[in-house]
């Protein structure tokens, strides 16, 4: 009785082992299908590239202007989203207040909203003929069809990434650590800076990278708010209309390279400690 209860028959164990393997294999197969589906277009697209064509395609004045505009606007949008979004994420992770649900819903809205619609909404609020838009334009800072307009569009669409990710990061920081810091004589701000921020750093950095990638690739909202001056995505669209797939390969590769570079840099600079010791 005891024997049968405790030890499995060897034959039984082997059966169970092979069943477990089979089950894992089924999961791997499902994942594999998705992997292949993601890989195939990638390879097909890269197969179109010729090095000489890429370099010459990027050296035209128009391409250089678009690259410069993107490299100017996306970091600014990311910085704005981070500086304003991380504190919001912290408040959402730590405090409960009336209307919090509404705030949370609004923050993720741009994630689920089609960017084109987001862009239209921005136009209705800050467009040239709105009070805010006309005032700004009168002061020499047009909010549409300008670099500022691009930043507005990018920030609107991309900022949820840093808020959502940083919020999860702060949520994973044990609140007792903050209480400990307070009881050791540090105020809320010093505690945020010394304890919460360093411990949530991994998540925040991940959020910043995602936000930057989204901002530099932003097309839908940018197209509505600031079709000119061109950014890399809007230029890709224009070139696709006029020259087809092959025309956009250089710019697409450049965009891809920038994102990869940022990701690599960030991973180098920040030794991302995501696991919080408990």
């Amino acid at each position: 009785m005891t024997d049968r209860g405790v030890g499995l028959h060897p034959q039984n164990t082997r059966d169970r082992g092979s069943f477990a393997k089979l089950e894992l294999l089924a999961l791997a197969a499902l994942g594999g299908i998705l992997f292949v589906y993601l890989l195939v277009p990638f390879v097909a697209f890269l197969a179109r590239t010729g090095t000489s064509g890429t370099v010459s395609g990027l050296s035209t004045p128009g391409a250089q202007r678009a690259t410069r505009n993107s490299l100017l606007t996306a970091p600014v949008s990311t910085a704005i989203a981070t500086v304003l979004g991380v504190p919001l994420a912290y408040v959402l992770a730590r405090r409960s207040f009336s209307g919090k649900r509404l705030v949370e819903a609004l923050v993720v809205l741009p994630l689920v909203l089609p960017p084109v619609v987001g862009g239209s909404m921005l136009l209705t609020a800050f467009g040239r003929f709105t009070p805010i838009g006309s005032t700004a334009a009168g002061a020499g800072i047009p909010l549409t069809d300008s670099l500022v307009g691009i930043v507005l569009a990018q920030t609107f669409v991309a900022s949820p990434f840093v808020v959502v990710t940083a919020r999860a990061g702060f949520g994973a920081v044990d609140e007792r650590l903050e209480h400990a810091s307070r009881s050791l004589g540090y105020g809320p701000l010093a505690t945020f800076w010394n304890v919460s921020l360093p411990l949530a750093r991994g998540a925040i950095v991940a959020g910043i990278v995602l936000t930057f990638a989204r901002a530099i690739g932003e097309f839908g909202a940018t197209m509505m708010v600031a079709y000119n001056p061109r950014t890399m995505p809007t230029r890709i669209w224009v070139e696709f209309i006029t020259g087809g797939i092959d025309a956009i390969v250089p710019m697409a590769l450049a965009l891809f390279a920038i994102t990869l570079l940022v990701l690599a840099l960030v991973q180098r600079v920040g030794t991302i400690p995501t696991v919080i010791d408990r």
Binding site: D174, R176, R182, G185, G187, P188, P273, R278
Partner: peptide, 20 residues
């Protein structure tokens, strides 16, 4: 008075050492 101004030492049930 907020906790940082209370001069109270606190040791929790589970570790609250700063892992970093």
């Amino acid at each position: 008075v907020p906790p940082e101004s209370r001069d109270i030492g606190l040791v929790f049930q589970q570790s609250s050492l700063f892992p970093h």
